[in-house]
Structures are given as C-alpha cells and as structure tokens.
Design a protein around this nucleic acid. Structure first.
Lengths: 202, 202
DNA sequence: TTTTTTATTAATCATTTGTTTAATTCAATT
DNA sequence: AATTGAATTAAACAAATGATTAATAAAAAA
C-alpha cells in the first residue's frame, strides 16, 4: 500500500532528492528545495511536516528501491552463481552511472545517523539469498574456497561501488572527464566477475 | 616548513577534526568546536579566520598524512610486489580501525567540493609508484594478467576501505558490535593479499 | 616598571534557517 | 450560486549561526 503522491509532492521530493544527493542533508536548505521545485516554501511543511521527515521518506524509498533491485538478482531461481555475479555487476554499475552520487550520500548519512535507519528495509535478505546459498553449495562441493559469506558479498560490492565513490580522486589521477570515467567503470562489468571467480576458485 | 601551532590552536584543530569527521562540515557549528575545545568562540576566527579556512587546513593535513603513509609502502625499494600488497593491507586496515570515520568523511566532502581540493597533495605519486612498476614488470614477464594499473590499484583500495564505509550496514546484517566488526576487518589483513594475488595471477 | 604586543573574553551583529501564521485562491460539493 | 475544504501564498517568528567588536587580561619587550 504505497502512498499516492500529488504532483506538487512529487516536485518537492524530486528536487529534494537531487539536492540531498548533491550536498547532503545539512547543507541543503528548505528554501533551496522550494526554489528548485518551484513551490512555495510553506508547502514543504504543509505536505511533509518537516525537512527531516521529508528526508526520511526520500532515504527510505531510495534504499528500498535499491535493495529490491539487488535482491531480485540475488534470488533468481534460474541463474547460476557465476551468472548472478555477472548480472549484479551489470545492473549495479549501470545504476550507479545513472546516479553516481548515491553511494557516498547513503553511506555518509548512514554514518551520521546509524540508529535512525534501523527501520531500513530488511538487509537480512542479502545473507539469506540464493546467491549466498549457491556459494556455500560450491564450497561444500569443494569448488570454491571456504570464506565467510559476509566477506564474499562484501567483496563483490566493494569492487563495484568503491571506484565510483573515488571518482573525484580517480578523475584527477588519470585526468579523466565524466565520460572517460564511465568508460573505465563499464570495463569493470566484464572484469569484476572474472576477478571474483578467480578469488573464490580453488 | 611546517607551521608551528600553539597549544590553543592544537586544541581547536583537534576538536574540529573530531567533529568534522563525526558530523561533516555543514552539520558542525563553530560553537560546538569552541565548546569541545574549551576555548572562546572568537578564538576560532582569531586564529583561523573562518570555519572554512579551518576546515581546509584540517582536510589538507589529513589527506597529506594519509597519502604520505601510503606512498611510503608503495615505494619501498626492498619489498616485492606481494609483500607490498600485504603491508598495504596491514597498515591501512590498522589505520582505518583507529580512525574509522575518515574514509566516508573524506570521500563525501570531496564529492561536495571536488574542485577545492585540486591543490590536494599529489595523487600522481600513486600511479608512478614502485608498486605499479612492479606489477607492470610482472605483466611483461607473463606472470600477471594484463589489466590497466588503475584497476589494479583501485581494487586493492576497494577491498580494504569499502567494508569500513559499510560498517553500519554490515553491523546490522550480522548483528555485530564494534569489536566484532573490527575482528572481521582484521581477518581481511590476511585474506585480501591472497585474493588480490589470485586476481592478477594467470 | 612601563609600554607594547598578544591572547582571551563577553556581548553583539547581520544573516540564515526551519517552521508557522493568517490570508487568499482554487476546486469540488451541495 | 453558495458553501466547504484543500491548496497556495506572502509575511513573519524564533532560534541558530558565522563572524566581529570593543574591552580586558596576560605576556613580552622596552
């Protein structure tokens, strides 16, 4: 039972999300949000009560959308482990190229406010996913080396996400513009699955 | 020619760094810094002109200190590539356990202000380091697979740093307290070098 | 000691910020 | 057409914030 948002509410949410991603919660003012979404300042509180409430809604929806997409791949019944890894890379690299500010934003706000997001859409779904089960099957069969599943999952995400978070540094180091940087990231769609397989294979 | 700081200046800088790391630049107020460092509010501007100038000094010193330590390992003449990887993991994991908020803080502020840190202590030193040269030698000899050095360097840092940035998520997923989380990270001191070697070996 | 410079303080200023208000416009219902 | 309720607006409020001032205390130089 998703809430239906009016046109105005959507305008506010869209502008707010864009600004929060770019500047973070604290550096974003309600007046900026009002200006960007072309609504009157008072409407923000009229519809969302407070800046913080608005932020919570946006954060929750963003995390939920992301986790849903991820778990979808992780739990696919038809695909093998190696296919899942490949699909994860492809999907998530595309997603991050489309919204490159999101990972740093999320992890930073989560750091600033670790408790307030305990209501976060269940993260347990990852460790109990088919991806993890398939990895553990492989370990039993002696195909893969024995490593804690949490490391396995973390490694995949690390190799995918972290380079995006370092984009200001990487761009400077290699004198890349955004397009060139994205090309570099797209290369990793093919490389990361190979690396991961090599890491876990005996 | 490092600037000599008075006792008061050090008190201000220490408190400011701690608060900036915890809450970020925007969410930290000058009054908080004054209170935490037990100095009068006006002294902040007396010694550092403005909040932003103080921030820039702290940011520069922090980055410089970190990069120096890293390049030190990267350029060691005595060690082999595999030893360098091992030492990097050990050193950097210890450093991050000691100051776990730093990576997210740095990358987030860098995102918010990518241009202002172009004066950043030369990042080129990494790509021209002995570590990278040794990797490329290995590629020529046919020991390692041919991958762009930038990917090689990025992968090492990704596997080391990203898990720390995800600590709020990992802690929740596995129901870990800080001590247990750190144990998990310490495990990676031994694992990551193995994984990296597997990744690059033919 | 006297003078001068430096360090520290409390008080204040001018903006900015999140939020609220009361009035007005707009749309739907009777 | 009249009435009711929701949507929108301009104006204002109270608190917070970065910065400055002018006065005082402490330290250094004369």
């Amino acid at each position: 039972m998703k809430k239906e948002y009016s046109e105005t509410e959507i305008k506010i949410k869209t502008a707010a999300k864009s600004l929060f991603l770019k500047k973070g919660y604290s550096a974003t003012t309600t007046r900026e949000i009002a200006k960007e979404s072309e609504i009157n300042l008072a409407l923000l509180n009229y519809y969302f009560t407070s800046k913080w409430k608005l932020f919570e809604i946006i954060m929750f929806e963003t995390l939920f959308e992301f986790l849903s997409k991820m778990v979808e791949v992780y739990n696919d019944e038809k695909t093998s482990l190696e296919e899942k890894i490949k699909l994860t890379c492809e999907k998530y690299i595309d997603m991050t190229i489309a919204e490159p500010l999101l990972p740093t934003f999320v992890l930073n706000e989560l750091k600033n406010n670790p408790t307030s997001f305990l209501k976060m859409p269940s993260t347990k779904m990852i460790m109990s996913s088919r991806l993890v089960a398939q990895y553990q099957e492989g370990v039993k069969k002696g195909i893969y080396t024995q490593v804690e599943p949490i490391h396995f999952v973390t490694n995949i995400m690390s190799l995918i996400v972290f380079p995006f978070m370092c984009s200001p540094i990487l761009k400077k180091m290699e004198k890349l513009n955004t397009k060139e940087f994205n090309t570099l990231m797209l290369e990793r769609k093919k490389s990361i699955p190979k690396w991961i397989i090599k890491m876990i294979k005996k």
